[in-house]
Amino acid sequence: MPNRSEERVVTPGLLRDWPLPSPTGDKTSRGTVLVIGGARCTPGAVLLAGVAAMRAGAGRLQLAVAEESAVPLSISVPEAKVVGLTPDGAPSDEVLEMSAAADVIALGPGLDDVDRTTRLMTAVLGAAGRDTAVVLDAYALGALSKDAGLLRQSRAVLTPNLVEAGHLLGRDPGDDLAGAAHELAVRHDAVVSVHGHIAAPDGSAWREESGDAGLGTSGSGDVRAGIVAGLLARGAEPAQAACWAAFAHAVSGQRLAPRFGRVGFLARELVDQVASTIASV
């Protein structure tokens, strides 16, 4: 296992010295993000992740959700191409074609069945290219905890919450979240971002200290996964995308606190702060 480096604190200064790729050209130059998730009762998770990806700078957005939610979601997010999954949650041929062509796939927001998610991941990640960037969140992490071979791509970011990190580790992560992130990064050859701690497979590590209790709200993790996806689409490397996303997510919450208090804002309100937070750096 690579040696674990001391964590560097993510600050505006660190990010300014690690600038995101400058936007050039048309929307295709900022990449296509495909968000796959949204079970029958939770299509909003895909909406949050998808719009967050656009706010982070992605050029094109595609969403794949439970079939009955596709039309309402296409009206709610007119910027996106929205397609339905089959009734058993499997990807259609169209979704597999989209997976093969996407620059970034964010998989997991709003899914609610680990076996269906496993089948979905097998098909989607099998159709995607080896160099496709991947963000795994929510039930996709549960599936990965049962079969590490599901992740075939080399440019991946895992965004577990504490419960999901425990499933991936096979134990309670305890207080050493930096150590847990490092262990998972090496095990899955992916960047891992958990509760403000970011680790890369080579042992590099960072810590974002701006987050507060208000980020622990329904849908907040979907927003964070979407920010990562959007930054990957515009050309950021996985560790860079994870660090910038952790900062943008946390500081967006800080910006809302004076109006709503520390724990009164909603995940959808975080999304509206993302672009200006990134621009402020």
Score class of each variant (00 low, 15 high):
Gly166Val: 01
Leu107Asn: 06
Val274Gln: 02
Val114Gly: 04
Ala52Gln: 02
Ala213Glu: 13
Pro238Trp: 09
Leu34Lys: 12
Ala53Gly: 01
Ala148Asp: 01
Leu177Asp: 01
Ile105Leu: 15
Leu150Glu: 10
Ile105Ala: 09
Ala52Leu: 01
Met98Ser: 15
Asp17Val: 04
Leu47Asp: 03
Gln273Asn: 08
Gly25His: 04
Val157Ser: 09
His188Ile: 03
Ala156Leu: 05
Val228Tyr: 10
Lys146Thr: 07
Ala239Tyr: 06
Cys41Gln: 13
Leu73Lys: 05
Ile75Ala: 13
Glu237Thr: 12
Arg60His: 11
Thr132Asn: 05
Ile198Gly: 03
Pro160Met: 01
Trp206Tyr: 14
Leu270Lys: 06
Asn3Trp: 08
Arg187Leu: 11
Glu94Leu: 10
Asp115Arg: 12
Ser5Gly: 07
Asn161Cys: 02
Thr11Val: 04
Gly170Lys: 14
Glu208Trp: 02
Asp175Ser: 14
Gly261Lys: 09
Pro238Cys: 08
Gln273Trp: 00
Leu256Asn: 04
Gly57Gln: 01
Arg119Lys: 11
Ala239Gln: 09
Thr32Leu: 14
Leu168Phe: 12
Arg55Gly: 00
Cys41Ser: 15
Ala128Ser: 15
Gly149Lys: 05
Met1Leu: 15
Ala148Ser: 14
Ser74Glu: 07
Thr277Ile: 04
His182Ser: 13
Thr28Ile: 14
Thr118Leu: 03
Gly230Met: 12
Ala140Asp: 09
Cys243Gln: 06
Thr159Trp: 07
Glu7Thr: 01
Ala49Val: 01
Leu136Asn: 10
Trp244Tyr: 10
Gly31Pro: 10
Leu162His: 13
Glu237Ala: 09
His249Tyr: 00
Val10Asp: 08
Glu269Leu: 13
Gly230Pro: 05
Glu67Gln: 14
Ser145Glu: 03
Ala233Leu: 01
Arg224Asn: 14
Thr277Arg: 10
Ile105Phe: 13
Arg187Ile: 04
Ser69Ile: 00
Pro160Gln: 03
Pro258Tyr: 03
Gln153Asn: 11
Gly25Met: 00
Leu256Lys: 08
Ala213Pro: 06
Gly261Asp: 06
Ala190Trp: 04
Leu184Met: 15
Val194Ala: 15
Gln62Leu: 01
Ala49Asp: 02
Val274Cys: 10
Val251Ile: 12
Met98Ala: 15
Ala123Leu: 01
Arg119Ile: 02
Thr32Glu: 15
Arg4Phe: 01
Leu232Asn: 14
Ala156Val: 04
